[in-house]
């Protein structure tokens, strides 16, 4: 059953990702990206990360992708000749093949015997309470730095959006 859920979400996510990079229309790409994020949220929930599954839908599929869709519709791009970048298709293909090989080699070499067997997670694993506790004790400094990062991003976005750049 678990495996069935994994394959369902996994293949749907893969399908969405591949159609995303192949589609001609940016809007189609964005919608497929949202589908991909929903599938990943399902996988997060299956892995016990319930808070992150909710955040994935709210922050990624909700906020970020709506912003992307807004920009796509705002720019109203016209179809140009070809969707594929013209620089060194051969170089790209070789690089991509090498990368795929690397990933496969890494995963197949991973020695599962050395990892501790997956424990049954506790009742509050991945819950809001557990994550919040860790976030405000062990991860307090990174949490505060994140707020500074977001402030910097807001200032940067406002500067970029000014008339004269």
């Amino acid at each position: 059953m678990q495996l069935l859920i994994f394959y369902g979400f996994g293949f749907l996510a893969l399908f969405a990702a591949i159609s995303m990079i192949m589609s001609r229309q940016p809007v189609t790409s964005a919608l497929l990206m949202i589908l991909n994020m929903f599938c990943l949220a399902g996988l997060y929930a299956q892995l016990g990360a319930h808070l992150l599954a909710a955040l994935q839908i709210m922050v990624y599929a909700g906020a970020i992708m709506v912003l992307v869709l807004f920009v796509i519709m705002f720019l109203n791009l016209r179809e140009k000749a070809g969707i594929v970048s013209k620089h060194g298709v051969m170089t790209q293909a070789v690089g991509i093949a090498a990368f795929g090989f690397l990933i496969t080699a890494l995963v197949s070499k991973l020695d599962m015997g050395k990892l501790p067997a997956a424990k049954a997670p506790g009742a509050d694993f991945g819950s809001v309470a557990a994550i919040g506790r860790a976030l405000f004790t062990d991860y307090l400094l990174p949490f505060e730095i994140t707020s500074v990062l977001l402030l910097a991003a807001i200032v940067g976005a406002v500067v970029l959006a000014k008339r004269k750049v």
């Binding site: 495996l3 920009v71 790209q92 990933i103």
Partner: peptide
């Protein structure tokens, strides 16, 4: 393993997209 392979494949698809598409939003 299953999760790692799926994640690696999704990452590779992302790399292919970054290298080959010409629309900055994609």
């Amino acid at each position: 393993n299953h999760y790692l392979i799926l994640s690696g494949v999704l990452f590779s698809v992302g790399v292919v997209g970054v290298l080959s598409r010409r629309n900055a939003i994609i």
